[in-house]
Amino acid sequence: MNERELTVLVTGGCGFLGQALVSQILARTAWAVRVLALPNERVPEAWGARVQILRGDITNPGDVGRAAAGCSHIFHLAALVGDAGSYAAHDRVTVGGTAHVFEAALRHRSIVVLTTSICSYGDAIQRGACAEEALPGKPQGPYGKAKQGQERLAWRFKAQGGRVCIVRPANIVGPGSGPWLLDAAHALRQGLPALIGGGHGHAALTVVDNVADFMLLAAQTPAAYGQAFNIEDDLPVTWQRYFNDLATLMKAPLPRSIPRWAAYLGASVVEPLFRRFFQRQRPPVTREALNLIAWDSHFPTAKARALGWAPKVSYEQMLQALGQDIQARGL
């Protein structure tokens, strides 16, 4: 089939990473792009008529099936994002929605690029570098558990003859990032501790455009099918440096630090209360978040680089764009 005749579906296309991916597809391919968006979800005006918007819900198999019809590729990003919400909600949306995507992909013989997360490694992150073949540890919250569930479905899909590539992004940064800009900016403005144990651990950051770049490469590279890939930018950046840089851009006080033991004690007290009584609110501290920011995290990217991928957007370029976004948002 000629490239100009290809139609691709992006679930979660209106989200942070999804918008970056759709922008790259439009700029670099002749593909027709279809996005499955929630009924009231805001669609970027810049897309205009270049993107076909189908309103629906990833938890509805009929909606997913209609959106996937005729698509050569499905970029599956739709999920509950973050460490708030119950295990049941994450399972229904993230795992259940992924099951619907794979069912549709089998019917339509679509190639699936599935975005999970380094959170799928669970507490293995605390024991050293996690290459793609590392056995997952105990999940640290509903988000990580759901990501592990997605990956189990992906390997089952592969065993059924499906073509799938699993992308495990590290901590995605850039303008509009929920946890690493909006939430972090709120913590800094409130004078809350943003560093754990001094923040000396490797932050495992990756710029959003670099993740989207790999996803597009993987979709077009048959050697990527049937494999999982870590994506991080291999930056010599600690959490202390990143949060200090963010505070400087915001003209906010530099972040404070608390000991790791104190952070985990706080999580053990408040997280169960929020899971039971305030399920729609994000707990002020969770084991899922601490699993990412309280340890020296490393996720080798040799496999992705062997496909020809390398980060194109530098940390300095990202900081410049972040500064502009901070000004525009009044952060």
Rank of each mutant, 00 (worst) to 15 (best):
A228V: 05
I166G: 00
R127E: 10
D83F: 06
Q148A: 00
W261S: 14
T248W: 14
P136R: 03
Y121L: 01
W155G: 02
S117H: 00
A224F: 15
L273V: 15
F157I: 03
L249M: 05
V64F: 10
R305M: 09
S117R: 00
M250R: 09
G174K: 01
A170T: 12
L54W: 08
G12W: 15
F75R: 04
G178S: 12
L217S: 01
S72A: 15
Q140L: 15
K303L: 14
D63L: 07
N230C: 07
A49I: 05
L331T: 00
R107I: 12
D63A: 14
G174N: 05
P255W: 05
G149E: 01
A105I: 05
Q19A: 15
V313L: 10
D91S: 06
P255A: 12
R109V: 01
R109T: 08
A20H: 10
R55T: 05
T116W: 07
V285C: 09
R163Q: 14
A131D: 11
G178K: 14
N2V: 04
H76Y: 13
I58E: 04
F75E: 03
S314Q: 05
A262P: 00
H108G: 09
Y315L: 04
L38A: 14
R107Q: 13
F299K: 08
N244Y: 02
P255E: 04
C119M: 11
H100D: 02
P39L: 07
